[in-house]
Amino acid sequence: MEIINIDNASYYYKAYNDDGTVGRAVGVENVTLSIEEGSFVALVGHNGCGKSTLAKLLNGLLVPASGKVTVCGMDTSDKNNIFEIRKNVGMVFQNPDNQMVASIVEEDVAFGPENLGVPQPQIVQRVNDALAQVGMSEYAKRSPHRLSGGQKQRIAIAGALAIQPKVLVLDESTAMLDPMGRREVLQVAHQLNRGGMTVILITHFMEEVLDCDSVAVMDGGTVVATGTPMQIFDNGTLLNRVGLRAPRTVELAHLLKNAGWNVTPDCVDARTLGGEVCLNLDQIK
């Protein structure tokens, strides 16, 4: 079932031309995209390609200038829907320090349900559940300030979960993290997805895209390609044009396959690929 529908949506930012007149800059232009409930979708593209603008269209932080964005059957341009839409779309942003509203972890997670007017005993329940889901229960009473980047982002995810959304949007939530932090966040995202959550992962780390159901590639404000991760990785010309590159292992596997080696072209693990290459060399001997 479709949970989000983006129909030919465009959004422009106000921008000043060199001569001082007011013009506009493309945020996104004529984007059409459908997202299935329960899927794990990656949105990739270089910085400034419009992927974060698109994210903000998903929960009505921005409203399209033309076209339409529908979330759970509700039009985001109708102001009466905004509250209901945001209840369904949880969003986590890039900078972990800039989305904390309280100086105690559990207080921060409680912010969403407090806004919704959830009765007190249920808030406690929601906060505890959300923290458990991201594996941060033991940090409930701590200050977020001393935690690692990955832990902070897991708190931010818990903050979104406490609203009990159907969709979780990670808007470059891994961009500022070290590899360990990125792993933590992705693990949580995949685990939530297995529990039925629709996840939209916005990123430019192609390694993170490997385990997604589908990928939408953005460039210049539009979606230029959609497909499975492997379909996208196969298209070297496309990736090159939009300034991305496949994970190194996949790149090497493709090169070898094209040169006639007997290797799995979609190999994502360098050690497996190494083993395959050894077998090839043995056979030649």
């Binding site: 903000k56 929960n59 932080l61 509250f83 945001r86 209840k87 779309v89 949880g90 969003m91 942003f93 890039q94 900078n95 320090d97 800039n98 989305q99 509203v101 559990e106 207080e107 409680a110 912010f111 969403g112 349900p113 407090e114 806004n115 919704l116 007017g117 959830v118 009765p119 007190q120 808030i123 406690v124 906060v127 931010a156 903050g159 979104a160 609203i163």
Partner: peptide
């Protein structure tokens, strides 16, 4: 920071004092 925080708060259904409850 203020801009990002406003987005984060809006995304978490902040609407001012109306009908807010408290965990604590």
């Amino acid at each position: 920071r203020a801009d990002e925080l406003a987005n984060a708060m809006n995304s978490r259904c902040y609407e001012g004092a109306t009908k807010r409850t408290r965990m604590r």
